[in-house]
């Protein structure tokens, strides 16, 4: 990879006091992730994967070290994370093991909310949310509450929400843990497409190595240290395997980007890639 990395974690440590001792959750980790790159972070429980994600996502400050975003230093041990909320909203998308959808909002509203709180006009936000969900095969679920969606559908809504503000960095923490193998692969394939088509840098913390062939790199953490940083293997063969089966999810450009009044418009952002759209061949994740 060349050029400025989107995410750059420099010599980050994270120490937690535990009684008389100090637990080193992260111990001098450095990591660069470039635009269009899909990186897996693996490791046993307690190895520091989630801590790395929290620090990279500006949800926790490092005990030492720093986090840079496109070359600019954004997080240090002394940072006030609350002041980074606007930055996080516009630049980082999150997907977790649980979809964490707002239960009283429909799928469409959950996605639109992420834009409305960024001052996008409600109608434009709604239209863009609908196009994102349609692209993920959820066009019939737009008006459904999360309780009426399956786990896979909820996870896709969460991905659509993470993409709503067109972030340059997408961070996912065990996004396939609640899904079966096939659905899990499809979600990772979706991340692959997001990285390729939208040019986003995507970091996925996972235990699930069945979809390892999708990743450009796999970083292994043990006891808070990177022990291995491999370049991804060539796509595996078999059902839904690797880039060869990468879903055609990003075919159509949405026309729903309009500017509205004093509020921000979806069109105001730079859109590195077309809005994802499900391929007719693609088996939707139920």
């Amino acid at each position: 990879m060349t050029g400025e990395p989107v995410l750059s974690v420099r010599d980050a440590t994270r120490h937690y006091p535990s009684g008389d001792t100090v637990v080193k959750a992260l111990d001098g980790v450095s990591l660069d992730v470039h635009a269009g790159e899909l990186v897996a972070v693996i490791g046993p429980s307690g190895s520091g994967k989630s801590t790395l994600l929290l620090i990279a996502g500006l949800l926790e400050p490092p005990s030492s070290g720093e986090v840079r975003f496109r070359g600019a230093r954004v997080s240090t041990p002394a940072v006030d994370l609350d002041r980074l909320r606007d930055f996080r909203r516009r630049n980082i998308g999150f997907v977790f093991q649980k979809a964490n959808l707002i239960p009283f909002l429909t799928a469409g509203e959950n996605v639109a909310l992420a834009m409305e709180i960024d001052d996008v006009a409600p109608r434009a936000a709604r239209r863009h949310a609908e196009s994102l969900l349609t692209g993920l095969g959820l066009e019939r679920r737009i008006g459904n509450l999360p309780a009426r969606l399956s786990g896979g559908e909820q996870q896709r809504v969460a991905i659509a929400r993470a993409l709503a503000n067109d972030p340059a960095l997408l961070l996912a923490d065990e996004p396939t843990a609640a899904l079966d193998g096939r659905r899990g692969r499809q979600v990772i394939a979706l991340f692959r497409s997001i990285a390729d088509r939208r040019g986003a840098a995507v970091v996925v913390v996972t235990h699930d190595l069945r979809a390892a062939d999708y990743f450009d790199r796999t970083i292994e953490l043990i006891d808070g240290r990177i022990v291995d940083g491999r370049i991804g293997t060539t796509p595996a063969s078999g059902e839904g395997g690797g880039r060869s089966l990468e879903p055609e999810m990003f075919r159509n450009e949405t026309q729903h980007r309009r500017k509205s009044g004093a509020t921000r418009s979806v069109q105001d952002r730079s859109w590195p890639g077309p809005v994802p759209c499900r391929s007719p061949d693609e088996d939707p994740i139920p």
Partner: peptide, 16 residues
């Protein structure tokens, strides 16, 4: 509280 944490995560201002 969980939803509020989620709102904060996706960058909702305190005013929201």
């Amino acid at each position: 509280l969980h939803q509020i944490a989620m709102l904060k995560l996706i960058g909702a201002r305190n005013s929201v």
